[in-house]
Amino acid sequence: MAKTFVALLRGINVGGRRKVPMAQLRALLEGLGYDGVRTYLQSGNAVFTAAEPDADAVRVELERAIEAEFGFAVPCVVVDGRYLRAVVAACPFPAAELEGKQLHATFLSRQPEPERLAGLDPAAFAPEDFRLGDRVLYLYAPDGLGRSKLGEALHRPAVLKGIDWTSRNWNSVLALVELAGE
């Protein structure tokens, strides 16, 4: 039985570098045998179905194919549609009351050890705040991620070293949940 996956590519199509046109990404995914391929925005969001039930196997195949096609490595986080819906359901912030640009989800390839976050005092960054979920960091940044000191601190190598990650604003997360349907 086919499973719906969401692939989140990190660091593409930013500032004219590491270009991955979405039409080419869709063709690449279809060439790998995935069905129902759709992309969202230009920042590397793809939804598709695959017979392969393991997200990590899909990630490895996708990362290899992207590097072969475009000539550079692109870290990807691949999750299934159910997990993405669970991320939305578990959001510890009042998402419905916030603007989409104020709330972000940083998707992680694996759960970080708690001590990695222990040195971050949320009170020092107020009114910004974060919570760790299941392989996701929820970040409330009232002035947006681009101005967030807490976001900067959370994405430092000391916190995320050895973990592939990529962030999406809440509007994108909700749009991807809708695209993943099921």
Rank of each mutant, 00 (worst) to 15 (best):
M1S: 14
M1D: 11
F5A: 11
R10F: 01
R10V: 04
G16P: 06
G16W: 10
G16V: 13
P21G: 07
R26F: 12
L28W: 12
E30F: 10
L32C: 13
Y34V: 01
D35I: 09
G36E: 15
G36K: 14
G36R: 15
R38F: 09
Q42E: 04
S43P: 07
V47H: 06
V47G: 06
E52S: 06
P53M: 02
D54W: 00
A55L: 02
L62D: 04
G71Y: 04
G71A: 05
F72V: 03
F72W: 10
V79L: 15
L84I: 05
R85K: 14
A89M: 10
A90E: 13
P94T: 09
E97R: 15
E99C: 09
E99M: 14
Q102S: 03
Q102W: 05
L108T: 05
R116A: 13
L117H: 05
A118S: 08
F125I: 07
F130K: 01
R131Q: 13
R131E: 12
R131S: 12
R135A: 11
L139Q: 10
L139D: 01
Y140A: 10
A141T: 03
P142Q: 05
L145S: 12
G146H: 02
S148H: 06
L150H: 02
G151W: 00
G151E: 04
L154D: 00
P157H: 01
V159A: 00
L160I: 06
S167T: 12
R168S: 06
N171A: 08
V173W: 02
A175C: 06
L176V: 11
A180N: 12
E182M: 10
E182G: 14
